[in-house]
Simulated assay, not measured.
Amino acid sequence: MIRRAFELKPHLVQTGKLSADPLFIGKVRDVVGLYLNPLAKARVLCVDEKSGMQALDRTAATLSVMPTTAAGRRHDYVRHGTTVAALDVATGKVIGQHRRRHREFLRFLKTIDANTPPESGPHLVCGNHATQTRDRTWLVRHPRFHLHFTPTGSSWLKLVERWSAELTNRELRRSAHLRRRRTRSKRRTWIDAGHDAPQPIVWTETADEILDGVKS
């Protein structure tokens, strides 16, 4: 009765995180500026290295749901690789790559290089994972690439997170992946299907609106 009268909902918990990045304001303005007002001829790609989004196979067969009995599955699993993707902000198309290890950012940079016109200057919106020394050396030799980093603890600034969530929810979460080749094929099919009728994920909030919300 008291809960209803005061509209209390103790079963619900809201979580949040405020970035402690000392360059938070500058990074927000940089990334949001790319989304809303990209430079002429610039191709803005939002990159997500999803080490946590993996194709897993359970160590035993999953038991089907039965009357009065929930579906059952083993808690342990076998890993079959991870996905890294670059979402083209303007078109909604995705450059994707499946790999066994997640520390292969250089290989993906070369994939982007092969899939973008030479005259375009790819602007990559990335998280704060530290690129390895060989990655930085490669970037020095390819000055048309420009990296823009989101603030620490601010993955919500990466538009590709929305695409990753769809792939996880619709393809990976409840499925078992028996072979790496089949896993790569399913993800390739998912990416190709999106290219048939790509839908850009449009960013609408300005940097000032975001920063005002943080202050409040």
Rank of each mutant, 00 (worst) to 15 (best):
M1Q: 10
I2N: 12
A5Y: 11
A5M: 11
L12T: 05
T15C: 13
A20S: 14
F24R: 14
G26D: 15
K27M: 05
D30N: 10
D30M: 06
V32C: 07
L34G: 06
L39F: 06
R43N: 07
V44L: 08
V44Q: 07
V44M: 07
C46F: 06
V47H: 02
S51M: 13
S51Y: 07
A60G: 09
A61Y: 07
V65T: 12
V65L: 13
P67T: 09
R74Q: 13
H75Y: 13
H75E: 12
G81K: 02
T82I: 10
A86N: 04
A86M: 03
T91E: 05
G92A: 06
K93G: 03
V94P: 00
V94E: 01
R103S: 12
R103N: 14
R103P: 04
E104K: 15
F105D: 13
L106P: 01
F108P: 03
K110F: 01
I112E: 03
D113H: 07
N115G: 00
T116R: 02
P118N: 04
G121P: 05
H123K: 04
H123E: 10
V125F: 03
C126I: 12
A130K: 11
T133Y: 03
T133N: 06
T137L: 11
H142M: 01
H142N: 10
P151E: 06
P151G: 06
T152V: 12
T152A: 14
S154Q: 06
S154L: 02
S154A: 12
K158V: 00
S164T: 06
S164M: 15
L167Q: 07
R170M: 03
R170F: 02
R170W: 02
E171T: 03
E171G: 00
L172M: 05
R173H: 07
S175I: 04
R180A: 10
R181L: 08
R182P: 00
K186Q: 10
K186V: 15
A193V: 06
G194Q: 11
D196A: 15
D196P: 03
A197S: 11
P198L: 02
Q199W: 00
P200L: 08
W203T: 02
A207F: 00
D208M: 02
L211G: 02
L211K: 04
D212E: 14
V214Q: 04
S216N: 12
